[in-house]
Nucleic acid binder design. Structure first.
Length: 95
DNA sequence: CAAACTATTCAGC
DNA sequence: GCTGAATAGTTTG
């Protein structure tokens, strides 16, 4: 088991709750985590995020629909979002 | 324990 | 639309 900060755990759970093809804002994640005013902490945690491959940090964007930042790079994040959108459609329409 | 840093957000012009 | 400042939690020494 990996030990981590209490807020981080909630943040990860909130991010994992985001459906594929959809994106949420850092504020939203912070709120789900229990601290709506900790949007900045969310970014800090995800930045040091110990499980970048099991946490869809790319589904978290800024409030202005800005892409925000990503561990693998903003470009990779954008690409992933578009790809996930297609995947979501596939799962919904079973194309 | 305290200081510094940060993947953000809000307000003003 | 852009710039500057604030706030909350994590991390490191």
């Amino acid at each position: 088991m990996i030990k981590m900060s209490s807020f981080a755990k909630q943040v990860y759970k909130a991010v994992l709750k985001i459906p594929i093809g959809e994106v949420r804002t850092y504020k939203w994640v912070a709120k789900e985590a229990g601290k709506a005013d900790a949007y900045r902490a969310v970014g800090t945690i995800l930045k040091n995020n110990p499980l970048p491959l099991i946490i869809p940090c790319h589904r978290v964007v800024k409030s202005n629909s800005d892409v925000g930042d990503y561990i693998f790079g903003k470009m990779r994040k954008k690409r992933l979002l578009g790809l996930e959108k297609e995947v979501a459609m596939c799962l919904a329409n079973k194309k």
